Amino acid sequence: MLAPQAWREAATQVCLALGLGFGGVIAFSSYNKEDNNCQFDAMLVPLINFFTSVLATLVVFAVLGFKANIVNERCIGENTKMIDIFLKMGNISQAIIPSHINFSAITAEGYHEVYDIIKRAKREEFPALNLQSCYVEDELNKEVQGVGLAFIAFTEAMDHFPLSPFWSVLFFLMVINIGLSSMFGVIEGIITPVVDSYKVRKELATVLCCFLSFCIGLIFVQRSGSYFVAMFDDYSATLPFLIVVIFEIIAVSFVYGTDKFMEDLRDMMGFAPYRCYYYLWKYITPLVLLSLLIVTLVNMILSPPGYYAWNKDKKYP
């Protein structure tokens, strides 16, 4: 909770989920009726997003928990076979194994008991045995995020589902739909000001924007694409969002004026918006965002950027 990166990523997630910082919401709102109740929309959309996020969180953790149990059972099975081989070869004495342990139907508790006994009995030789502890908590604590979550953890978990091809098709259809729906807002935020300012055909602007985005996206499908994904995710999709949103709130609250903006909303909706918005726009939100930006910049300065590289000398399972 005290890590600046966690709060920065949380703020970025809010911007991405609500479409803040890249013009999509502003572009869509330009099509609203003049008397649209935007205060109701401003309350409804975050609530829908909140409950959707809670639902998605439940699904994600359920799938990751299922995967962790599957991997843990596999780990126990493989290491139990290794222990059985060591017993037959004489590397481990049968006398230290409790009589109630049945290797043909061993439980997680039974394996951990045997593991601890062998670790104590073979203190010096234990590292050479290469036995794993096989705790489900260790599997759950492994950091899985970004591309790894969608294309590694989830796909591995779905491989163990009943009718796994069916669920795999549904999952990747969902991923495609999420990507397309996200791009609608992004593209609209780009082409709407272009069309309104330069009076070009919207179809032409859309095609050119999509083609340019496609060309830029080709760098992500190279052999080094994962590095570009990580770089864009860490530096192009987090810190810039904070800066853009800060400038937006400054422009509305201090350049245009909070009082004038509140009057515009009164004229638009026919009633005065809640007074709490005044204090949020003018004081609380700018202060929180600026504090988060300063802490993030200090943390980035003190912690030089780095990346994970493939180790060709390491043997991977």
Rank of each mutant, 00 (worst) to 15 (best):
S226K: 14
I249G: 00
S53D: 13
A42D: 03
A153V: 01
A150L: 14
G77A: 06
N91G: 10
F241H: 10
S168I: 11
S224V: 08
M262P: 06
D196W: 05
G77I: 02
R275H: 10
L242G: 13
K199E: 15
G270R: 00
A6N: 15
L55P: 01
L149F: 08
I284A: 12
L204G: 11
P317T: 03
A205H: 05
L64V: 13
E9T: 08
Y279K: 07
V229W: 04
K312G: 10
G65W: 00
Y115H: 07
R8N: 06
K314G: 03
V195H: 00
R223V: 08
Y308I: 11
M89C: 13
I216S: 12
A230E: 11
Y274C: 12
G217V: 04
F154S: 05
R123G: 07
L131R: 05
I187C: 08
I48Y: 11
K315Y: 12
I249Y: 02
Y256V: 08
T192I: 07
V252C: 10
I106Y: 00
T258G: 10
E156P: 01
Y308V: 10
G146N: 03
F271L: 07
S168M: 15
V207S: 12
D234E: 14
E125R: 09
F28I: 09
V207R: 11
M231G: 06
L55F: 13
I118N: 00
Q222T: 13
C276R: 07
P286E: 00
C215A: 15
A272W: 06
L208H: 08
P304L: 08
F86Y: 13
L212W: 08
G217T: 04
L287I: 13
S181T: 15
G146L: 02
I83R: 00
L293N: 03
Q132G: 07
M262H: 07
F254S: 10
A68L: 06
Q5L: 11
A42Q: 03
F184K: 11
Y111I: 02
S133H: 07
I70G: 07
N299R: 07
D233H: 04
A10N: 11
Y115Q: 00
A237T: 08
S164N: 14
I190C: 03
S224K: 11
A6I: 07
Y277T: 03
Q145P: 01
E34I: 11
A10P: 01
A128Y: 09
Q145G: 09
S224Q: 13
I117G: 03
Y235M: 06
W167T: 02
V114P: 02
M174D: 01
T238F: 06
E263Y: 12
S93L: 04
F214L: 12
V252T: 14
H100A: 01
S303P: 07
I219M: 13
A27R: 06
N141E: 13
N69W: 05
V295N: 05
S182K: 13
A62K: 12
I106V: 04
Y227H: 12
Y274S: 15
I152A: 08
F241L: 15
M158G: 06
V54H: 01
V245K: 05
I76Y: 02
H160T: 03
V295D: 04
T52R: 08
Y274A: 14
E34C: 09
L170T: 12
D84I: 10
I191G: 02
F61M: 13
Y307F: 14
F171H: 02
S181G: 10
D84E: 14
L173T: 11
F66C: 04
T12A: 15
I250K: 02
V14G: 06
